[in-house]
Amino acid sequence: MTVDSILESIPPLAVYLAVGLIIGIESLGIPLPGEIALVSAALLASRHTLDIDPVWVGASATMGAIIGDTIGYTIGRKFGMGLFERLAKRFPKHFGTGHVALAKQLFSRWGVWAVFFGRFIALLRILAGPLAGALHMRYPQFLAANAAGALCWAGGTTAVVYYLGLAAEKWLSRFSWIALLVAIGVGIAMTMLLKERTKRLIAQLETEHDWETLRKPLT
């Protein structure tokens, strides 16, 4: 059985549901590879042999992001900053004081725009919904920024990846292994660079903040 035959056996509905579910769970505050799921689905949609609609990929990602963030907002609103303190004890690599302090700084500086642009930033994509609720951001403002950010992120990412996939399909058919290695190398290098810079900033904030200071309202 070839890779193509395996891909062709995947029902399109399963792809849409998987994308929406993964992104929705990630938006709740649970670290999952939502962006990878979206990019992978958009690439699959660019293959003319598969019956995957890029419009439905973008739509399922958008709905998953909006619903997941809204549920995350509700949870954060109910449990407050104490929720992050409890999560930090179990998942310090994702919810430590440095992570929450950085996200809170971005909220303090950008306000509701942090929700919009947070959809494009891995750290805020996980924390934006619950943190907005914990900080008692007004829900209508949150919903508007959340929906706009989800639509731009999901729709934009799907469109860019889809059309790049179409444009590169003929070239990739000739140089598939070279293209794959180059793409992986560039992706790993950029990811590691960004991760290292964010890690240093989080480590610095870790020493400057504790949960007592993080509970203070935004100024």
Score class of each variant (00 low, 15 high):
residue 39 V to T: 08
residue 157 T to L: 07
residue 160 V to P: 04
residue 35 E to L: 12
residue 212 E to A: 15
residue 28 L to Y: 04
residue 187 G to P: 05
residue 199 K to R: 15
residue 36 I to R: 00
residue 48 H to G: 09
residue 120 F to G: 08
residue 153 W to C: 07
residue 135 L to F: 02
residue 95 F to R: 07
residue 181 L to D: 05
residue 169 E to P: 02
residue 131 L to Y: 03
residue 36 I to H: 02
residue 39 V to A: 01
residue 30 I to G: 08
residue 193 L to E: 10
residue 136 H to A: 13
residue 35 E to W: 10
residue 181 L to C: 12
residue 63 M to C: 14
residue 18 A to Y: 07
residue 176 S to M: 09
residue 139 Y to I: 06
residue 36 I to A: 15
residue 215 R to C: 09
residue 138 R to S: 11
residue 177 W to S: 08
residue 90 R to T: 08
residue 171 W to I: 13
residue 51 D to C: 00
residue 209 H to V: 11
residue 179 A to G: 15
residue 29 G to E: 04
residue 139 Y to L: 03
residue 42 A to M: 07
residue 160 V to I: 14
residue 201 L to V: 09
residue 187 G to I: 11
residue 1 M to I: 12
residue 28 L to K: 00
residue 56 W to D: 01
residue 63 M to N: 05
residue 208 E to Q: 15
residue 163 Y to G: 00
residue 39 V to D: 02
residue 26 E to F: 10
residue 206 E to D: 10
residue 18 A to R: 08
residue 173 S to N: 12
residue 79 F to Q: 10
residue 83 L to R: 06
residue 170 K to L: 10
residue 128 A to G: 08
residue 148 A to I: 12
residue 105 Q to C: 00
residue 218 L to T: 12
residue 207 T to L: 13
residue 136 H to L: 09
residue 129 G to I: 00
residue 83 L to I: 11
residue 146 N to I: 02
residue 213 T to Q: 13
residue 173 S to A: 12
residue 6 I to L: 15
residue 111 G to F: 03
residue 110 W to N: 10
